[in-house]
């Protein structure tokens, strides 16, 4: 496996809009039209395709931007005002729907119990997933994994002491510990190639449903706001806690379907790595942050709960479609 990027890194293409908000956003980014008005934002479904894509477009300017879009728009005051207006209903819906715990430890302890008779996406893929379903899963997860650990880096200046040291150590590991060929986002790109998917950053944005975009928007929302640093840490802890057993099931799925060595390797690497990360995040990052800022306990719990809520929504979308023998994507890959 080659460990270096092939060719120049290009910015992703702007996707087509999915409704009034996202269509207006793409027009504004191209410089051809006005931003959506507040009434249209207030009318949109918080977890729907239109609002989620509009929010994704705003956030992407902080990562790699889009081809043909002025990089300076990242700090355009009008665009930031609209972004805040889009974030408000998303965050309000999450607080209302997702919140189940008041304490970080309670929220995380619940994730440590493996359901013996559990159903769910990774169990489905391990036991009966077909190659086309694995490809659909990976295509939609690529929107997340090709940004893996990126928005979590934004929390580093907002932490100190044990929390900062622990977070930086795990991030270093996620970013390949100094080796480009081991960057987790790179390993995921190799996995995509095994599944005959295009590993270009942002390539499957258009095909991904609102549920897959919401998972990414959640970490961008938490990562970009210092006020939500507790939620970002909770989100990261939830991901690292659930990743190891889920990755084992996905590695088994990749082996059973003969997906390829890089496809299996990505998930095998995460079985071991995330068993370590879980411990470090729990003992150093979460415990360290609670020591420094005990009032963030409820926010950390919210970050865990919000992550579970949106992952469950994504699981419902995937399994619902597959049980009906249908594609879970908006367009085929």
């Amino acid at each position: 496996m080659e460990g270096v990027e092939k060719g120049p890194v290009t910015e992703p293409e702007l996707p087509p809009g999915r409704g009034e908000l996202s269509a207006a956003l793409t027009g504004y980014l191209r410089g051809t039209g006005p931003l959506p008005d507040d009434a249209a934002i207030a009318d949109a479904a918080p977890f729907g395709d239109d609002l989620q894509l509009a929010l994704y477009l705003c956030y992407e300017l902080h990562y790699r931007g889009f081809a043909g879009v002025d990089a300076a728009l990242e700090w355009d005051p009008e665009l930031l005002r609209v972004r805040a207006a889009l974030e408000q209903p998303f965050l309000a819906a999450l607080r209302a729907e997702a919140t189940r715990h008041e304490h970080a430890d309670d929220a995380l302890d619940e994730l440590l119990v493996e359901p013996a008779d559990g159903r769910g996406v990774t169990r489905f893929l391990r036991d009966e997933g077909e190659l086309w379903q694995l490809r659909e899963y990976v295509a939609q997860r690529s929107v997340y994994h090709l940004k893996e650990a990126d928005p979590h880096a934004w929390v580093l200046p907002r932490l100190w002491g044990r929390a900062k040291a622990g977070m930086a150590a795990v991030e270093f590991d996620e970013f390949g510990a100094g080796r480009a060929e081991r960057v987790h986002a790179r390993l995921f790109a190799d996995l995509m190639a095994d599944l005959d998917l295009d590993p270009t950053y942002g390539r499957y944005l258009h095909e991904s449903g609102a549920e897959a975009l919401a998972v990414v928007n959640l970490m961008s929302l938490f990562g970009l706001h210092r006020a939500l640093r507790g939620a970002l840490v909770g989100h990261f802890a939830a991901v690292e806690t659930t990743s190891s057993p889920g990755s084992r099931r996905l590695a088994d799925a990749m082996r059973r379907t003969g997906a390829g060595p890089a496809a299996e390797h990505f998930y095998r690497e995460h079985v071991e790595a995330d068993a370590v990360h879980e411990q470090v995040v729990r003992r150093e990052v979460v415990a360290g942050l609670l020591e420094e800022e005990p009032w963030l306990d409820r926010d950390i719990a919210f970050g865990v709960d919000a992550t579970s809520c949106l992952e469950d929504r994504l699981a419902d979308r995937l399994l619902g479609a597959w049980r009906d023998g249908e594609s879970s994507l908006r367009a085929s890959v």
Binding site: E110, L111, L112, V113, E114, P115, A116, D117, G118, R119, G120, V121, T122, R123, T242, P245, G246, S308, E311, D312, A315
Partner: peptide, 14 residues
């Protein structure tokens, strides 16, 4: 090493 619950909420699994 994690504990396994007999009848946990299926949504908790991913």
């Amino acid at each position: 090493h994690r504990r396994h619950a007999r009848a946990a909420c299926p949504d908790a699994d991913r």
